[in-house]
């Protein structure tokens, strides 16, 4: 009789211990889940603080005049006209150089490249280029484009530099988009007698367009915020004039002088204002930063949206 009682007690005790153990494990679970949420909140909070800090200082400066004025020695008159025009033109060069090169390289690596050492070299190279610090691209541009090729500190130099910088992004995005296309599509085209280029041009590239577009937008969003390489090529920071317009009323209607023009871009303008001691210029920096952040956010959001649509719509 006594033995059974102790047996039950022992049993109950073990059960209690087990329950306590399970409860403590569950507490750990809950604890870690809260730590995880906190970590995420930390990231979100940092971003919110960054955005609101800039918004508080910068929003009063964001007026139509701010977009239509040149930089000035007096903070309240200064604006970002030459900066946003410069950024737009540089992005134009970057896109025109990076898209054909990046898509071409991506198509080559996925569709054409034979399995040999040369292909391996190119692949390893693209991976490594993606990790090279942006300022090193600036040194490349300074030594090679500015002095060896004599392109000067121009929009062309800046555009080409940023194009090289985002090339890995475009290549990787192109490759991923192409890799998602089933082999059956290619086999179908070949079965109808299409050549390799016809298959690529009529099927592979159109079907991977959304993925490529995502990569291009993300790449350009990165390029538009890049400061270090542009500073390194020695771009001036005080530019109170616009490059010659690319389009003109008289024949031949297009004008390429703007390519060799000195320029400034948004991040440089912001850096310039940030490094001045006067409070008033800090407000300008905040306003410029706000415009810059909104621009990159819109571009990134667009890319995320395209990718989301793509994932929902395509069913192979």
């Amino acid at each position: 009789m006594g033995a059974t009682t102790t047996g039950t007690d022992l049993h109950a005790g073990k059960l209690r211990a087990l329950r306590a153990l399970i409860a403590s494990h569950k507490r750990w679970d809950l604890f870690f889940a809260s730590v995880g949420v906190l970590a995420l909140m930390f990231g979100i909070l940092a971003f919110v603080a960054l955005f609101f800090d800039m918004a508080v200082d910068g929003v009063p400066r964001i007026t139509p005049d701010f977009f239509a004025s040149f930089p000035s020695r007096r903070a309240e008159n200064a604006g970002i006209l030459s900066a946003w025009v410069g950024s737009t033109l540089v992005m134009l060069v970057t896109a025109l150089a990076a898209v054909p090169l990046g898509v071409g390289a991506g198509v080559y690596l996925e569709e054409y490249a034979p399995r040999n050492w040369m292909t391996d070299v190119i692949e390893i190279n693209v991976t490594n280029l993606a990790g090279v610090p942006s300022i090193v691209y600036g040194l490349l541009a300074l030594g090679l484009f500015v002095y060896q090729f004599g392109l000067g500190q121009s929009i062309l130099t800046a555009g080409l530099t940023l194009a090289l910088l985002i090339l890995p992004v475009v290549i990787v995005a192109t490759r991923e988009a192409i890799r998602a296309i089933p082999v059956a599509i290619r086999e179908g085209a070949y079965a109808l007698g299409a050549s390799k280029w016809q298959t690529t041009h009529d099927h592979i590239i159109p079907y991977s367009m959304a993925g490529i577009l995502t990569g291009v937008i993300i790449g350009l969003a990165r390029a538009i915020g890049e400061t270090a390489p542009i500073i390194t090529i020695g771009a001036l920071t005080f530019i109170a004039f616009l490059p010659p317009p690319p389009v003109q009323a008289t024949a031949p209607f297009v004008n390429f002088e703007w390519l060799t023009s000195p320029f400034t871009v948004m991040p440089i303008q912001m850096f310039n204002w940030t490094s001045r001691p006067e409070e008033a210029f800090q407000a300008n920096a905040a306003a410029a930063g706000l415009v810059l952040v909104v621009m990159t956010l819109v571009m990134n959001a667009l890319a995320i949206y395209i990718r989301y649509r793509l994932r929902r719509n395509i069913k192979w």
Binding site: G43, A46, F47, L50, M54, I218, A221, R222, I224, G225, E226, T227, A228, P267, M270, F271, T274, A285, A286, G289, L292, V293, T296, L297, M299, N300, A301
Partner: peptide, 12 residues
């Protein structure tokens, strides 16, 4: 998006 913020903005 957090990773896409320009570094000059982080500097500021």
């Amino acid at each position: 998006l957090l990773g896409g913020v320009p570094t000059i903005v982080y500097g500021y």
